[in-house]
Design a protein around this nucleic acid. Sequence first.
RNA 1: CUGCCCGUAGCUCAACCGGAUAGAGCAACGGCCUUCUAAGCCGUAGGUUAGGGGUUCGAUUCCCUUCGGGCAGGCCA
Length: 572
Amino acid sequence: MKQTLIELLDARVRAALNAVGCEGAAAVIAPSGRPEFGDYQANGVMGAAKARKMNPRALAEQVLAQLDLAEIASKVEIAGPGFINITIAPDFLAQQLEAALADEHLGVPQPASQRVVVDYSSPNLAKEMHVGHLRSTIIGDALARVLRFLGHQVIAQNHVGDWGTQFGMLTAYLIEAEQEGEVALADLEDFYRRAKQRFDADEAFATRARECVVKLQGGDAQVNALWQKFLDVSLHHCESLYAKLGVGLKREDVRGESAYNDDLSVVVRDLQAKGLAVESEGAQVVFLEEFKNKEDQPQAYIVQKQDGGYLYSTSDLAAVRYRAGSLKADRVLYVVDARQALHFQQMFTVARKAAYAPESMKLEHVGFGVMLGEDGKPFKTRTGGTVKLAELLDEAEHRAFALVSEKNSEMPEAQRREIAHVVGIGSVKYADLSKNRNSDYVFSWDSMLSLEGNSAPYLLFAYARIAGVFRRAENFDAAASIVLTEEAERQLALALARFAEALQTVARETMPHFLCAYLYELAGQFMRFYEACPVLKSEGSVRESRLRLCQLTARTLKTGLGLLGIETLEQM
RNA sequence: CUGCCCGUAGCUCAACCGGAUAGAGCAACGGCCUUCUAAGCCGUAGGUUAGGGGUUCGAUUCCCUUCGGGCAGGCCA
């Protein structure tokens, strides 16, 4: 059975702890930050010693005597107050890498799978996608890919905004625009703006817009057809951006607010029947003792407005019911702006109370901060408008093209365009994914597309270098064994052996930046190896072994970048 | 008023449920291309982790508090 190095060490150290009478003590294995402290350290001894009022150093001695790492470690020693430092044996590492090379999944374990719903992207279809939708879209996509790779059954849900009063306004305006023979929907943003202007300025139009909402919800054929037409155009727009971004969302993943329309009244009646929802100031609300409002009273979670209309708080509850009941989810990830944190906490609370979400189904809000401009304020255009996502991506490709052309003036334009696409889009995504999603982050063209450092081009360059090696290697032995003699080789090997750990951390913490950090570390180790250890110029088994290391590095980089939704290049 | 997130090198960010000397990149300075792609590598310099208490063998991490920034809190999403 496949397992990660950490799992392996964890099991061995726990066994040793058991053997000396510390049943149930955690091993606490962590990569050690410094070479002089070995590759991994077991820190659990100190915790166990504390719990049993023992001398940690003495306990470490006992554990060490029982610890069997014969074929795994080349050195095991006690250091400091009671750390056990472990250095992995080169032969064992080599064996791990060979196993990974022989495995389609690069040796990554695929545990019993869960059904995981990932709710992400979820744009408002009334308008064009803007930069605010970028984070949800790519963070969600990366998480979906990683979870899938780890063997989980991922159900993507694009909970688009396709319902509500604004669609009455839009269909009403569409009726007029059609009559005037306009090609109205070419620019969604413009269309929305003109409709809104009309709505605000013309009372008669506003009335027709409200009538359209009623007709829409009542199933009126004409209004529904127009609404469908609008959605289709808007979804096409989204899909073109998904394609450009390399995001895997499909039309069948779309299940918008409108899909829950028929359930809304059911949910409210059910909440009333369960004694959760009560009338308050004409609205139907669920009072939550767990949250206080401004008057220090229980917070009201509104599920139906005074005028009888429903809110997103209602459709979110309907969606939970669907995800538990029809999708049979074990875990649901909501990749949504951190500003909605309170809403999700409350919604989860209501969903639990109403038994829409069984205790066994985990609900997690995967929040993220906003994108800021270089001035530290929300990222806007010079005139203060929202930046369209399409424009941002075009700009990224433009800048990347200039950069590529500067580096490779003699390269055919078509190839430079291809490289610019991968570098440009990859840079935008990587710049975002490489940061801890919890905090706001500063969007900077310079640091993003800069030639150096922790950026997409660095990783892509590492991959392209390996591709270059294989272009020149006329033959190589794909069954050659790996031998790690140089320290640079061993460090690269160690990084390669940690791929699965990185992925598991990403899945557990729902933090894609751990994968970025891992890939950056791996690429760095490869660069050092590349400088220190000639591949094609060495001979015999050394050459073959190094080619195998290159091969696994390339596959790991390509796979890892692929999980982030970033393409690779054979040449750049 | 209440709650959540954040504050780490000049700048942008890390630090894996508490671990050893807080790490990278940019910017600055100094080296390395007749040898597999220099979008690279090596080195130097840069820190009272916002301030103050506490918990303990050990705190950027946990608790309390002050300051500063962002966000949310009854009919928008």
